[in-house]
Amino acid sequence: MPESPEEFYARISAAAGADGRLPLPDMSDWRQFPWEVVDGTLVAKVLQPPVDAEEPREGTDPCRVCRSYGSDRTIWENDHFFVSMLGSHSLPLVLFLQTKEHLDFPELDDDLAAECGRLEVTLCRIMEALPHIGRVHVMRIGDGAEHMHDWFIARPERFAQIIGSLAVEWDEILPPVPEEIRRADAHEVARHLATHDGRALV
């Protein structure tokens, strides 16, 4: 099961420096990171002029989502969808719901959209029912790869700082969840999902 808030906090405190701080993550160097320090004050970065054409998303050649199907990151599948783990994460559990077919989210037909809705609710419910999970965020962002991949991000309970839209940033700040804990939780989620439909693969 996921760590209790006290275990989670103890592991993070052990990784932090004497002042309780974790190292500044790489994220602060990302082009998309909105903040910078100017004259000692935190301000939003100046918006740069628009570009003529955006960098394309990952398409079909090659598609990381297509290639990940069948890898040891896949924990569950049915005829149309598969669920994968993120390679490493620092919030308690991060999973993806993906179509087997290389489709973008707006391209789902009525039947796949309905099945997607049912699986979103089922997977969210299963993850939220794990001990020590506060809430599960379900997100379609879609800016990186065109192949549909809904994020399911479980945030820990009882941390007033790790809540809402900014909670995902803690996934870059905190140290990773130990492999044996996240694998065991993914197994439990896959087993539960398979009681509704499809097959557990872990």
Partner: peptide, 19 residues
Amino acid sequence: TFPWQVVDGTLEPKPLAPP
């Protein structure tokens, strides 16, 4: 819920408070 702050002129993640 904002994760960042400026300490001695440098961007830092805020320390996580206990649960």
